[in-house]
Computed example of a mutant assay.
Amino acid sequence: MSRQIVLDTETTGLYAEGGDRLLELGCVELVGRKLTGNNLHLYINPERDSHEEALRVHGITTEFLRDKPKFAEVARQIVDYIAGAELIIHNAPFDVGFLNAEFARLKLGRVSDHVSGVVDTLVMAKELFPGKRNSLDALCDRLEVDNSGRTLHGALLDAELLADVYINMTRGQNALMLDGDDDSVSEARRVVRVDLSQYVLPVLRANEAELAAHASVLAQIDKASGQQTLWKIFEPVA
């Protein structure tokens, strides 16, 4: 069965290329689209303070992180955990960018070297709900995922919420995820052939009142368009 890791991070700021660091990692494992409970949650000493704006978002202080392991101490644990899995991330370039920067410091390659692929749920949401707000909170509200416990951002909680959001957004794919030997798949593949030539389909013709109502609507549309409707071309000549 396919293994997927729903992943979220918290960071000291917005710019990995500017020296901001990763300080929390939350991962939730799905196997065959089901939660396994084999999650990974790490607080990491980022070796620098968080920007005030970031601190207001996640509330994780430098003092709290002071005795936590540095990224170099947990890097192999992270690489082993995500190995071969498909990552599911909301706004993937942000989180992947921070992981790539951390990996680069340790000469561990890039995230893409260790996983089978990355799914960006923000891109999915924009395709499913164009023109609407597609933050994690907005998607939870839209898809009826309970996020009442989310006051501050936290990597593990956000990953758990995103797992529910992802499953809801892709629920129609369930049939595609079944094993090939499943009885339900075999049942779905059975084709029942019906000879339709034995049926005579009735033709229901419009009565005078329905024809008059139809003609009235067409006349209104024609008037509103300045007598530019194309169907008049095909009207039979009286």
Rank of each mutant, 00 (worst) to 15 (best):
Leu122Val: 05
Phe234Cys: 14
Asp195Ile: 04
Asp8His: 01
Val118Glu: 06
Gly154Asp: 12
Val145Leu: 05
Ser2Thr: 06
Asp146Lys: 04
Gly117Thr: 09
Glu17Phe: 10
Gly32Asn: 13
Ala138Val: 08
Val111Phe: 03
Glu24His: 03
Val237Tyr: 12
Phe64Asn: 11
Glu17Gly: 09
Phe129Trp: 12
Glu29Cys: 05
Glu127Asp: 13
Val119Thr: 13
Gly97Tyr: 03
Cys27Ala: 14
Leu7Tyr: 02
Arg66Phe: 14
Val115Gln: 00
Gln4Tyr: 03
Ala238Leu: 15
Tyr15Pro: 00
Leu196Trp: 01
Asn100Met: 02
Leu35Ala: 12
Gly131Tyr: 09
Ile221Ala: 06
Leu106Gln: 05
Asn174Glu: 11
Val28Ile: 07
Gln220Tyr: 05
Ala72Glu: 15
Gly32Thr: 05
Ala101Gln: 08
Leu128His: 10
Arg66Glu: 15
Gln198Thr: 14
Leu230Ser: 14
Ile44Cys: 07
Cys140Asn: 07
Pro202Ile: 11
Asp80Ala: 15
Cys27Asp: 02
Glu160Trp: 00
Val200Gln: 13
Ala104Val: 04
Lys232Ala: 11
Tyr166Cys: 03
Arg171Glu: 10
Ser50His: 10
Asn168Ala: 12
Ala104Trp: 02
Arg193His: 04
Ala209Arg: 14
Ile44Leu: 10
Asn39Ala: 06
Tyr43Phe: 15
Leu161His: 02
Cys140Gly: 04
